[in-house]
Amino acid sequence: MAAISTEQAGAWLADYAQVIGENAAMLTDLDRQTGDADHGSNMDRGMKAVAALDVSSFDSPGALLKKAGMTLVSNVGGASGPLYGTFFLRFAGALDDGPDDASGLLGALRAGLEGIEQRGKAERGDKTMIDALAPAVEAFETQSGAGTSAALTAAAKAAARGRDEATDLIARKGRASYLGERSKGKQDPGATSMTLLLESAARTLGSA
């Protein structure tokens, strides 16, 4: 048995799809300042396709999340599709193999982070989604002994802090890196959408 149920995984994806839809214009505006002005629209299209998946047709949360990852890869343009797709694929694989408690969810989050690092050839401090996800994984680990709900809440708060701290960094990866010094002071759209993902997880997976 996995750390979360298939129904919880479906609720997470549905909640995130709704949040992305509500924030698509904001994400696109952030991307307009540093990139191709398509992060919000791309993610909205991808998550709409994910939300259309029939949760009841999957026999495990890992199977659902793997399909979500593949759906994002095929429906989201730019770098976001491969990166978020890789996150969910790695997360799903670790979830299936891990224990059915908070440590299982921690292993899945860590696997997702490692997947993004490898796929994007980026690290913390490059001003990417990693600057939100890495501190979130650390916070989850610190609070995992207090249970899944507390750990996810801590992770979401850490992601938001990481997102805000990255705003003052100079981008070293992606289209934003072309701006050089001018990227300083601009909020990273990837770190923003990643924070939304972790906040969604805290709302929907907290009872795992």
Rank of each mutant, 00 (worst) to 15 (best):
D96N: 12
A37T: 13
A11I: 09
G40L: 02
M70G: 11
G62E: 05
K48N: 06
A201M: 09
G174F: 02
N42G: 11
G93P: 03
D96C: 12
D59P: 14
A52M: 04
L53V: 11
S5V: 11
S183C: 02
T86K: 03
G46M: 06
V137H: 01
G35S: 13
R119T: 11
G98Q: 07
S103K: 09
A146Y: 09
A159T: 14
V55T: 10
Q33E: 14
L179N: 10
G104S: 08
S149G: 15
D100T: 11
L72A: 13
K157R: 10
P135N: 04
G69C: 13
D29T: 14
L105E: 04
A63K: 08
M26H: 15
S56T: 11
L106A: 14
L179I: 10
D29N: 14
A154M: 07
W12H: 05
S74W: 06
T167V: 14
K48T: 15
T71N: 06
A2D: 02
G145P: 11
A160Q: 08
A51V: 12
G145F: 08
I130W: 01
L72R: 12
A3D: 07
A208M: 02
T204W: 04
A171M: 05
A208K: 06
E181S: 12
R161P: 01
D36F: 11
S41T: 15
S80P: 13
T142E: 13
F140C: 00
S207Q: 12
A136H: 04
G98P: 03
N42T: 14
G190A: 09
K67T: 15
D188F: 08
V137E: 02
I116Y: 11
G125Y: 09
P99M: 05
F91K: 05
L13N: 01
D168S: 15
R163K: 14
A63F: 07
I116F: 12
L30V: 14
A160N: 06
L113Q: 07
V50E: 01
D59Y: 01
R203T: 09
R203S: 10
S103L: 12
I116V: 15
K67C: 14
A2P: 15
M129E: 06
L53R: 04
P61Q: 09
G10N: 03
E181R: 12
Y84F: 15
T153F: 03
I170H: 05
S149Q: 11
P61S: 06
